[in-house]
Computed example of a mutant assay.
Amino acid sequence: MPTGLSIHVGLNKVDPAKYNGWDGQLMACENDARDMAAVARAAGFEETVLLTEQGTADNITSALRKAAKKLKDGDILLFTYSGHGSQMPDTEGDEPDELDETLVFYDRQFLDDELNREFRRFSPGVRIFTLLDCCHSGTATEVPAAAEGNGEAAPRVMPVLRQQQVFEQNQEFYQNLQRELRKEGNGAGPGTVLISACQDHQVALDGRVNGAFTGALLRVWDEGAFSGGYQDFHRSIKDRLPRSQVPNFHTTGSPSADFLGQKPFTV
């Protein structure tokens, strides 16, 4: 029988000492991580949950590398992240918009290319399903409240001034990291399915109980009553969100038709 491992990260704040005094307070990210872990557990995954202070780059990288050593061809990894998303200048020229997207971990920003590098450590036959409930926006945007009664909503985006300050204060570190990742190249890697909360130029909404994206996902999933493949799942979540937040569906490493046609969270 295949093995399923899942890693769930939820950060309701970050370390202000690492972000020029900004703590990035949010309400629902830890709830998102716990709720996604419950979905994974019910589907037969062995879950790891990292909340706020535990959500450091080293802890998350360590969890991913342990999973990469354990999972074999035919197995599946589920990785979910709920927190802030940001962008920084792409100094290596591999991004069309000249910006690298980042996940805002507790102690530092984690480049999208870093996440890809960790996924490439997995055997090519491992299925990887990633859910990111965060902003990928480099500008502050006025955002309307979510449409389905999720309570007071705020964008999960690092303010532009903070983005600039944090990058400038750690510019040498991030530029060296970008250079290192560029030299390594992307490669094919295992088949990966990503459903993210919004497009790169948009922001994702927080909420009192869940983020707008995670809340919509949980309603679509309906405790496992959902039927259909990953693309059907994406479309159904998209239908429940406002036009200001359009979930993205993206694949890398050429996931098989069998993988794409499976019911999400199938071990």
Rank of each mutant, 00 (worst) to 15 (best):
E118V: 00
E47K: 01
E92R: 13
A63E: 04
T192V: 15
A17L: 15
A216E: 09
S86M: 01
Q164M: 13
T48M: 04
A33F: 08
D232V: 03
I195L: 06
L115S: 05
A33R: 07
T52S: 13
F226C: 10
S123E: 07
C198V: 13
I60T: 01
G21N: 10
L26E: 07
P96I: 09
V143Q: 12
G253M: 11
D112A: 10
F249C: 07
A37R: 02
P159T: 06
R235N: 12
V14S: 06
E148G: 05
G224M: 05
D107A: 05
E53K: 11
V9C: 09
E92T: 13
D73W: 00
D97H: 00
A147N: 12
L218H: 08
N248S: 13
Y174S: 08
F249Y: 15
S6N: 02
Y106Q: 02
G138S: 12
N20Q: 09
T252Y: 11
G21Y: 09
K18V: 06
P190K: 01
T251C: 12
M36F: 12
G211R: 01
P124M: 12
Q164F: 10
Q165L: 14
A17I: 08
R240V: 02
R208A: 10
V193W: 06
S244Q: 11
A145M: 13
R34N: 15
D73G: 13
A212C: 04
D35E: 15
T251P: 02
F122G: 01
E223I: 11
L115W: 04
T80E: 08
F45D: 11
V267L: 15
D200F: 00
A68R: 08
